[in-house]
Design a protein around this nucleic acid. Sequence first.
DNA 1: CGGTACGTTGTGGTC
DNA 2: GACCACAGCGTACCG
Lengths: 213, 213
Amino acid sequence: MFGSFSLYFYGSVRYEGRAVGLLGPGKFLLLRKNDGSVSVHGGSKIPPRNYMGAGTKMHMNVQAGSGQMSFKRKKEIIWIEISQIFFMEKMDEWSEDEVLLRKTEKELVDKIFRNWPDYIDGEYDLIEKEYPTEYGPVDLVGFGPQIAVVEVKRRRATVSDCTQLRKYVEAFGASDVMGYLASPEIGDNASQYLEKHGYNWIHVTFDSVHELL
Amino acid sequence: MFGSFSLYFYGSVRYEGRAVGLLGPGKFLLLRKNDGSVSVHGGSKIPPRNYMGAGTKMHMNVQAGSGQMSFKRKKEIIWIEISQIFFMEKMDEWSEDEVLLRKTEKELVDKIFRNWPDYIDGEYDLIEKEYPTEYGPVDLVGFGPQIAVVEVKRRRATVSDCTQLRKYVEAFGASDVMGYLASPEIGDNASQYLEKHGYNWIHVTFDSVHELL
DNA sequence: CGGTACGTTGTGGTC
DNA sequence: GACCACAGCGTACCG
């Protein structure tokens, strides 16, 4: 548990680690959270300009509103030069609750799993979720006289999604393997890619939300 | 230009749009930035619990420290029920400076482009960056008696990166096309995938930083 | 607007 | 720790 605070300051920020980044000088908002993570936010966009994951070690030497702060973690460092502080506020008992989400990919996977015959023709004796292959787990696999490999996306499907499906289909070897891409929507390019490679698209939609949550 | 502020409150947040999300009740920090973007931060992790892109329209009805706020944008809405406010601070002249980054993918692409013969054997008359194909632009393509397709990654290369390369190679049709994946590191699975499909790995590293920045 | 890919992606899960 | 994939990915860029 770390001391959480927000700090609005004028200064510059240097990050060194996986990359090297320079920011400012300018006015930025620094957040330090309960888990020791740090983010430096600029006045636009959602993601922080600089950031560092949980468990940073903080050093600071600030007097009369100016000085330096640093945050370290493994082989990364954020170095902040502060020339003016506008405000600093503590966030006590900052909630670590997570968002309860609906309309996830998992929801679509479960829907197809429970209503398999509505989506896929043919005889299948066994259906597996998250079936492991050499190159990662497949969302759904059906086993019968032939094998059905199903990759599910919660958003409009792209060509990249098709190549992911293809990777899984090929992981099963040559025999009788059908490839299915399931999503609420699919782009034209992806659609053509599927056809070209003999795979099929499954149109799957989210059930209405009304209940729950 | 919107009024930027941070608000630390006790309450709950509901998002509806591409998904449906419920958060809290609990203590959260709301940021509204110059561009009208909104994020609701919890006490852990770097990304916000809820968020909405630039240009949201804000409505609020808060009296005596409690009430409701909402943010709308296209077909999305964030609805916030506030029962207590701990602080609210304005961020005037919040800087929109961007980070100056080093060690980007572009840097590696340029390095291979300038020193092509150091990395790729054979005769090449023409080298193109961001060469367009049916399924997206390739980082580097060399043209000569044969074609060299090069996909570059700034981080450890994965199997997905290999399938991306494969997609590009196949976009050129059947003839004499060599596939190269260039990165500072590569995983074992990716390495095997390359070999299996007759592609090659190029070891490329970032030049030291000392100068610049 | 759709399509595509980068990102210090972050984060969680599995092995 | 490596590997893999999701995410309301966000964001930029190009068509």
